[in-house]
Design a protein around this nucleic acid. Structure first.
Length: 489
RNA sequence: GCGGGUGUAGUUCAAUGGUAGAACACCAGCCUUCCAAGCUGGAUAUGUGAGUUCGAUCCUCAUCACCCGCUCCA
């Protein structure tokens, strides 16, 4: 795939009705996209496949669907209110942007000393970790006093890709709150501030006890949820890849803490396999363990499932060992016990959690990118989405070869029958080749064509999208054949 | 947010300081042929807002959006 391929995907998405830009007639809204008629079918297919694989087919996982709006204290407890404030600082000379905490980690002692002096941090405890103390102080100053802090002239070095570190011309550190605020109630008082959830996970954690007492599950067991989440990403982009509103598929799997390592491995493999089951090419997928310094504040170990997009290897899903962090936090903040009674050892414990958190929109984009092919057929270019029949928005298209001799009537009948079970599309317009091509672009794996031979022996042709080969089958067997084909995948 | 690029029809492109043209796609009709290629007709565009100008799609500014990079994450 060449460098322009994302643009080709965007163009195809619009042309065929997968994805439209949000509020397009008003000039669009940054990084928000709407799913069109084909897009919503495919997205639903992906979500259903996840739900089936993670919930319905497992006896130790249950589902739930929490509200997007939650009590603001949920986010105090989860750490999102304080921790989601990453400070950014730009080097105007090299045009590079850094997270301030990452940059501070790389500074030599004498520079840290100068910064500490400037911020009036005392240097008396030798064992403390100065970068984090400095970082906290900067956050405190900015958020409480709303003062800008000028870090120029202290010799802070720019380390990005530079062998000999340079001093920078730095912007003031800026704060980004990644949660979207909203206000509840018709009169917008400041007391009514709440947040659109930045992850679905907390909806699961705050319901942990409810589920334990109602679902009759024993450790280890999981709670899964699918839903929208919102983040004020600093930089959005790459089409659907990073958006402010997105949809998550999350599993929180509660375990005995000592099983964490084993369970993390298990779920990482399970989730990798799931993406393969979507039809994504295995060689474009990989499982990557996080380095220590990549880990989120709640996590002690983490794997990413990554896909090789035209813009590079990027994360589709994170499988993380969150330990007991979340339940501990809610224990503390809500002052309500978030524990599990372990009958084997006759004691209350706080279970550890393995989280598998995937982005629906990213899975969708992966399917689209992975399926996109340009081929040459008889000297003409063919664009075809080689989507798995399980995710393709239209499973089967039905065509009367010509628009007379009763062929449309027979076709309609077959179409109606297929429609009872599969997503189908009826097309009687234009040459048959043109109609096949249209469906190729939509990723429709099968096509049924009713021709003159149908009138003689009641057979129709079944066309395969990828090979373009056709076989004749009895007209009354179309539904069975489709079932067979799909089940064999 | 910073730097670079881009914005004309559904898509891909063209053109011009004097109000826009093509290809493909789309719609209707004709034709009836198994892989986008026939015939006739049709609808559709200068992202938005200011400024300069007699006149702006073109020049200037702002803004919005998209793409690439920094950064972040599902």
């Amino acid at each position: 795939m060449d460098i322009k391929s994302i643009e080709k995907i965007v163009s195809l998405s619009k042309r065929r009705g997968f994805i439209f830009q949000s509020s397009e007639i008003y000039g669009g809204l940054a990084s928000t996209w709407d799913y069109g008629p084909l897009g919503v079918e495919m997205k639903n297919n992906i979500k259903n496949l996840w739900w089936k694989d993670m919930v319905t087919s497992r006896r130790n996982v249950v589902g739930m669907d929490a509200a997007i709006l939650m009590h603001p204290e949920v986010w105090e407890a989860s750490g999102h209110v304080s921790q989601f404030h990453d400070l950014m600082i730009d080097n105007k000379l090299t045009k590079k942007r850094y997270r301030l905490d990452h940059l501070l980690e790389k500074q030599p002692g004498n520079v840290l000393h100068k910064i500490a002096n400037k911020l009036k941090i005392k240097f008396y405890k030798m064992e403390v970790h100065y970068p984090s103390i400095i970082y906290s102080k900067v956050i405190k100053t900015i958020s409480e006093s709303h003062e800008d802090i000028d870090l120029n002239g202290l010799g802070i070095l720019d380390y990005y890709n530079i062998i000999k570190p340079l001093e920078g011309d730095w912007t003031v550190p800026r704060q980004f709150n990644l949660m979207l605020k909203t206000s509840l109630g018709a009169t917008a008082d400041s007391d009514d501030i709440t947040y659109l959830r930045p992850e679905t996970a907390q909806g699961i954690f705050v319901n942990f006890s409810n589920v334990v007492t109602t679902a009759r599950q024993k450790l280890p067991f999981g709670i899964a949820q699918l839903g929208k989440a919102f983040r004020n990403e600093i930089t959005t982009g790459n089409f659907l890849f990073r958006t402010r509103e997105f949809e998550q598929m999350e599993l929180e799997f509660f375990i005995y803490p000592e099983d964490a390592k084993e369970q993390l491995e298990y779920w990482s493999q399970q989730r990798l396999e799931w993406f393969k089951k979507l039809g994504v090419r295995a060689e474009k997928l990989r499982l990557r363990a996080h380095d220590k310094d990549e880990l989120a504040h709640y996590s002690t170990a983490c794997y990413d499932i990554e896909y090789e997009f035209p813009f590079g290897w990027s994360e589709l899903e994170g499988i993380a060992d969150r330990g007991t962090y979340d339940l501990d936090q809610h224990n503390k903040h809500a002052q309500k016990k978030q524990t599990y009674f372990d009958q084997v050892n006759n004691q209350h414990i706080v279970p550890s959690v393995i989280e598998a958190s995937a982005g629906v929109d990213r899975a969708f984009l992966t399917c689209l990118v992975d399926a996109y092919h340009e081929e040459e057929v008889n000297g003409e270019q063919r664009i075809v989405l080689k989507l798995s029949p399980k995710v393709a928005p239209i499973t089967c298209a039905v065509f009367p070869l010509v628009n007379k001799d009763g062929l449309p009537e027979i076709s309609e009948k077959i179409f109606t029958e297929i429609q009872t079970e599969f997503s189908a599309f009826f097309d009687q317009g234009g040459s048959i080749g043109r109609r096949y091509r249209r469906q190729d672009e939509a990723g429709t794996p099968f096509g049924i064509t009713i021709d003159h031979q149908t009138l003689e022996d009641n057979t129709v042709t079944l066309r395969d999208r990828d090979t373009m080969e056709q076989v004749r089958i009895p007209a009354d067997q179309t539904l069975n054949k489709l079932r067979e084909k799909i089940q064999s995948i």
